[in-house]
Computed example of a mutant assay.
Amino acid sequence: MYETVRDFLTRCFASGETIALLLRGESAGAPTQRVVTLDKVLAPRYLDWLAHENRTGANIYVAANPLRPGSRRRTKDCVAFARHLYIDIDTDGDARLAALRASDAVPAPTVVLSSSPGKYQVLWAVDGFDFARQEQTLKLLAIAFGGDPACTDCNRVLRIPGFLNRKYDPAHRVTAEYPCDSVWTPDDFRIDVATVDAMLFEHDVPLRKQPGKHSHSESDWAWVSHELAHGKDAVKLTGELASRRADKPNPLYYAQRTVDVASARLWLIEGIRMDDVITMLESRRRFELPAALCSARAREIAATAQRMMAHKKYV
Rank of each mutant, 00 (worst) to 15 (best):
243 S>K: 13
130 D>L: 02
294 C>E: 10
8 F>I: 04
142 A>Q: 04
293 L>A: 07
132 A>N: 09
269 I>H: 13
152 T>C: 02
218 E>R: 13
60 I>H: 02
21 L>S: 03
91 T>V: 10
291 A>C: 09
123 L>V: 04
190 R>Q: 10
38 L>Q: 02
288 E>Y: 11
266 L>T: 06
196 V>F: 01
67 L>D: 11
128 G>D: 03
15 S>I: 02
173 R>F: 02
59 N>K: 03
176 A>H: 06
202 E>F: 04
117 P>H: 06
252 L>H: 09
55 R>E: 15
266 L>P: 02
91 T>D: 14
251 P>R: 05
90 D>E: 13
168 Y>Q: 12
188 D>A: 15
21 L>C: 07
42 L>C: 05
42 L>R: 01
254 Y>V: 05
243 S>W: 06
226 H>P: 06
97 L>D: 05
258 T>G: 02
60 I>R: 01
163 F>L: 01
107 P>M: 07
66 P>H: 07
238 T>P: 05
28 A>Q: 11
56 T>D: 11
48 D>L: 05
310 A>L: 14
22 L>T: 13
293 L>H: 06
25 G>K: 12
297 R>Y: 09
239 G>M: 09
146 G>E: 00
123 L>N: 01
211 P>D: 13
310 A>K: 15
34 R>E: 15
33 Q>I: 12
180 C>Y: 12
99 A>Q: 09
9 L>M: 05
64 A>V: 12
112 V>T: 13
294 C>V: 07
35 V>S: 05
30 A>W: 05
91 T>Q: 08
27 S>V: 03
295 S>A: 15
93 G>I: 01
64 A>Y: 00
111 V>C: 14
300 E>P: 02
25 G>L: 06
45 R>H: 14
255 A>V: 04
19 I>Y: 09
314 Y>N: 15
121 Q>V: 01
278 I>H: 04
71 S>P: 11
118 G>V: 00
276 D>H: 10
119 K>F: 03
238 T>E: 14
179 P>D: 12
96 R>V: 00
53 E>Y: 03
43 A>E: 11
133 R>G: 01
106 V>K: 00
20 A>I: 04
307 R>V: 09
7 D>K: 06
149 P>V: 06
28 A>H: 13
216 H>L: 13
139 K>E: 09
111 V>N: 08
71 S>W: 10
22 L>A: 13
203 H>Q: 11
216 H>T: 12
181 D>G: 15
61 Y>W: 06
203 H>Y: 11
109 P>D: 12
